[in-house]
Design a protein around this nucleic acid. Structure first.
Lengths: 144, 144
DNA sequence: ATCACAAACTGGAATAATTCCGATATGGCG
DNA sequence: CGCCATATCGGAATTATTCCAGTTTGTGAT
């Protein structure tokens, strides 16, 4: 599994020459303690505020963008719904329930070989996103 | 291949009980003649206007939404970039170039079995989206 | 320790894709 | 031919995200 924890994230910040600030630490803690939720910027903002009172929404946006551009986290992009963030940066499928909106990680045994893709189409893959939409177990149980 | 052409789309409209209007025909023609571009709402709007002078942007949005909710087309969703639409509704990978923004379809020989997913996680897959981001052949050739 | 400077932070204003709304028009069935 | 559910229209509203200009702050070098 390639799920980053707090230590991983901090050491990656150092590696990339990004500064360790109280705001970033608060955001990292918020990300880690809500990783199952695949949190969005609003939730991160609220949670990060609890740890460090001085975090602005602008900073949260800038930081999440920085982190995903540097490969620390994955940004899941949606239409008319805020982006969500995933600490699992390995190739995997996000199962997204159309009814309750829950997002789950699904580990795929053998990934599509990006080497095959490069050979066949000359395209170099740097980042994969796979979303399967449908209905989760819980929602299937419930009527309506 | 499951790439819908004009006839397919029209017959699917009838099947679903959706009305055939001049606006929808113009939008369908715009979609079909730009299918390689994976067009967005703005392009569809411009192109559709050429065919039928009376098409509003609101209608384009409403129609593209209707079509994708009814499975006639696939909606590709992005952050801070307009949604794009794909007439290829089969399971396939969209290769998206980070430099020029071009979107290409990549046919995958064996898809991830949604039956496996259902068995292992109780999740019923209704719609798949796979995006691989990276750099296309043309952009790799060019310096800078 | 202290300095200097690039990087990060802030809050408010700006942006832009998309949706909403109330009114009007129209396709398709009886 | 007429009805009515559905589609269309244009403009206003929404909302997540970015931009901006000014201030603060980590961090590496002195």
């Amino acid at each position: 599994m390639a799920i980053n924890d707090k230590k991983d994230l901090i050491s990656q910040l150092k590696e990339k020459g990004l500064k360790i600030t109280p705001q970033r630490l608060a955001i990292i803690e918020a990300l880690v303690s809500n990783c199952d939720n695949h949190p969005g910027a609003t939730l991160i903002f609220k949670e990060a505020r609890k740890k460090a009172k001085s975090v602005s929404l602008s900073t949260v946006y800038a930081t999440l963008k920085d982190f995903s551009e540097n490969g620390l986290i994955k940004q899941l992009e949606f239409d008319r719904m805020e982006n969500r963030y995933d600490l699992n940066i390995s190739d995997h499928v996000n199962l997204i329930c159309k009814r309750c909106g829950k997002i789950m990680d699904y580990h795929i045994p053998e990934a599509l070989e990006s080497r095959d893709i490069a050979r066949k189409s000359g395209f170099i893959v740097t980042d994969t996103r796979m979303e399967f939409h449908g209905y989760c177990r819980d929602c299937l149980k419930q009527p309506d």
